[in-house]
Each structure stands twice: as C-alpha cells, then as structure tokens.
C-alpha cells in the first residue's frame, strides 16, 4: 500500500515546485489520493522554496507534513531546515553538488547525488531536479520513472516538447547515481 510523505526543498529556480507537482500529477493519473502544498509569498522571493507532497491509497488528511518519509534536499539551508524532521529510517536525498561537508543523521538512509554536475554533463543545469527525482523514484519505488515521464509528455507540449528527451536522460542518470 502506497503511503508516502515527501518534502522537497531548495533555492527558488531549482525546479523544486515542479518536481513535487510531477509526483502529484502522476499520483492523480494513477487515481491515487495526493496533496501538494508549497511555501508561498515573499518567503520564496530569491530565497528558499519548498513543497510537501503526500501520496496515498487512502484519504489524505493533514495537509502539512511534520514527519516526512523522505526529503529531497537541493541546497544547504534546506538541509538545516528539514533534516531534523525526517522520520527515523527515512530517506535523505542530497544534492551533493551543492551540499558538501555537512553533518548528517545516522539513523536515516542518505543518498548522495551530484545532481548539478550530472545535469551539466547532460547539457542543461536546469534538469538537476529531474536527476534528483530519478534517484528518488529508484530508491523509494513510489512510481516508475516511465509513469512520471508520461505525465511530463502531457505537460511539455509545443516548444517545450524538445525538452522531454533531456528530462528522460536526467531521470535515467539519477537512477544510475543511486544504483
């Protein structure tokens, strides 16, 4: 039974919100219950952005997540903010291109992903979020990357359609990074 609570956090502009929305769109496509909640307002201006996503086969109750099962951390301030909340035994996905030399909890599973470096290698720094998402999907098995890609294809139409291929590669590269 799927029941996943994840918080994704980083700088504004790292595609944090989109990553979360993709999870919720995929959940909706699979007829699961889901809830996406963003940080909002001037709080997000130039500073940090985060969103909480719940995916569940039963009803989603509390919209706020106090103890996430997983956290995806794109920058250092986000680690400080969300690491303490992570469930014991939960998954911590760390963008090690940007977050280095940090103290990590020992009671959680840490997955290091050089997301920025991998994205730059693929040719577009902007897909660092998809690299992280690929890693997240591989470890948690919430969905397969294929289902997420299907949603992406629906969202990225017109001029954006050309971006699907690199996003696919990014998901794939993220998966490999945690194999």
């Amino acid at each position: 039974m799927i029941s996943e609570k994840v918080i994704i956090a980083g700088f504004g502009g790292q595609g944090v919100m989109l990553m979360g929305q993709l999870l919720s769109y995929t959940a909706t496509a699979k007829d699961l219950n889901t809830l996406w909640f963003p940080s909002y307002g001037p709080e997000t201006r130039g500073g940090t952005a985060n969103c909480s996503i719940t995916i569940s086969e039963s009803n989603v109750n509390s919209p706020v997540i106090s103890t996430p099962d997983s956290i995806i951390i794109m920058n250092k301030p986000s680690l400080d903010k969300f690491q303490p909340k992570l469930k014991s035994g939960g998954h911590l996905f760390l963008n090690t291109s940007l977050v280095k030399d940090v103290v990590l909890r020992e009671d959680v599973n840490v997955h290091n992903v050089d997301a920025n470096d991998i994205a730059i290698e693929l040719g577009n720094l902007k897909v660092a979020n998809m690299v992280m998402l690929g890693a997240y999907l591989e470890v948690t098995k919430v969905f397969d990357a294929e289902s997420v890609l299907k949603v992406l294809k629906k969202k990225f139409t017109g001029s954006k359609a050309s971006l699907i291929e690199i996003n696919k590669e990014a998901l794939e590269a993220g998966k490999k990074a945690v194999l």
Binding site: Q21, S24, A27, T28, N33, T34, L35, W36, F37, P38, Y40, V60, P63, V64
Partner: peptide, 10 residues
Amino acid sequence: DGLIGQMMEP
C-alpha cells in the same frame, strides 16, 4: 484558509 488556497489536490 491559505492552506486550501495554495494546496493542490485531485
């Protein structure tokens, strides 16, 4: 409240 305004749900 702001939660309902800002959240996404199916």
